[in-house]
């Protein structure tokens, strides 16, 4: 059996990749994918810990996270589509109409 530590190490790596992606990428779709990677890193950690403790609550949390992520996708993609309709471009570096 693979020890729990390995899963946690993998999930930590995924989480770091995801957060670096959010900070460095400029396309909102890719940023959003990076955020999903962070959420899934947490899901992996939850499932691994749930197995370690032989407890269900960690697995149930994963279902909640998946459901909430789906709701976020719906809102996020709608926003991106709306912005694309208004300005034909979704690069976040060019979203600078608000500043001061």
């Amino acid at each position: 059996m693979v020890p729990v530590d390995y899963y946690i190490a993998l999930s930590a790596i995924l989480f770091v990749i995801g957060s670096l992606g959010v900070l460095s990428r400029r396309n909102p779709l890719i940023i959003f994918m990076s955020i999903e990677l962070m959420l899934n890193a947490a899901n992996l950690a939850f499932v691994a810990f749930a197995r370690m403790y032989d407890s269900f609550s960690g697995q149930i949390f994963v279902f909640f996270v998946i459901a909430v992520a789906a709701a976020e996708v719906a809102v996020g993609l709608a926003l991106i589509v709306e912005i694309f309709k208004t300005r034909k471009n979704i690069n976040v570096d060019e979203m600078n109409s608000l500043k001061g």
Partner: peptide, 11 residues
């Protein structure tokens, strides 16, 4: 992004 931190922290 922030809720990603909350979820991972909870994990």
């Amino acid at each position: 992004f922030a809720s990603g931190f909350v979820v991972y922290g909870t994990a």
